[in-house]
Simulated scan of single mutants.
Amino acid sequence: MTTPTEATAPPREHHPTLRLLHGLRPHWRRLLPAALAAAGSELAAAALMATAAWLITRAAEQPPLASVALAIVAVRALALGRGALRRPAARPRRCAAGRGGLPDPGVRGAGAARPRGRPGLSGR
């Protein structure tokens, strides 16, 4: 006996996410550095927020500068790292890290998957 969710769920091989991942498989060498750069940028952003929050609360106590110097350097380094790893929205073709590889295979893979995904709407 099947549950109502099992009866209405599409078969696993027809899931749209799995079809998209299968279509992007030939481009994995270009997508992997882009995905790692994006993950590094997000991790740097989270670490930047945590370090800056600690620095602000610690600075309210007016400690000697030597006791917060490492946090100051960490905030600067994390801000630079985050900026270097993310892709500027204003200049899509100029990027500092691997995210530059993301648009080309992503657009190519999505364009190839579009006619297969919705054959009735593609007009082909």
Rank of each mutant, 00 (worst) to 15 (best):
A60H: 08
R91S: 14
V107H: 06
A38E: 02
D104P: 02
A45Y: 00
L80D: 07
A60Y: 04
A90H: 09
R114G: 03
R118C: 11
R99F: 00
W54N: 09
E61Q: 15
A66G: 12
D104S: 12
G109P: 01
E6D: 10
L48F: 11
T3M: 05
P64D: 15
A47S: 10
A39D: 06
A35C: 12
T17S: 11
A50C: 08
W54G: 11
L65Y: 11
H14C: 11
P103L: 08
R86W: 01
A45R: 04
P10R: 06
E13H: 10
V73G: 03
G83C: 06
R118N: 15
A97R: 01
L20K: 03
E61W: 13
C95G: 13
A89V: 15
L48N: 02
R82I: 00
R25G: 09
Q62C: 08
T2F: 05
R29W: 08
G111D: 15
S122T: 13
R118Q: 15
H14P: 00
A37H: 00
G83R: 12
R116H: 14
P10T: 04
S41P: 00
L20W: 05
G120A: 13
P103R: 02
A35M: 09
A96F: 09
L31G: 04
L36K: 02
R86G: 07
P92R: 02
A74R: 01
P16I: 08
L24H: 05
A44Q: 01
L20R: 04
R94H: 07
P10L: 08
V73D: 01
A60D: 07
H14S: 12
G40D: 06
A97V: 00
T2W: 04
T5K: 08
M1D: 13
P88A: 09
H15M: 13
R87T: 03
P33M: 03
G23H: 11
G83A: 13
G23Y: 11
P103A: 12
G111F: 02
L32F: 07
R116I: 08
T51R: 04
L80C: 04
H22P: 01
A66R: 13
T3P: 02
P64Q: 15
A46L: 12
A45S: 12
T2L: 08
R29G: 10
G23V: 05
R114I: 03
R30S: 13
A9Q: 10
L85N: 00
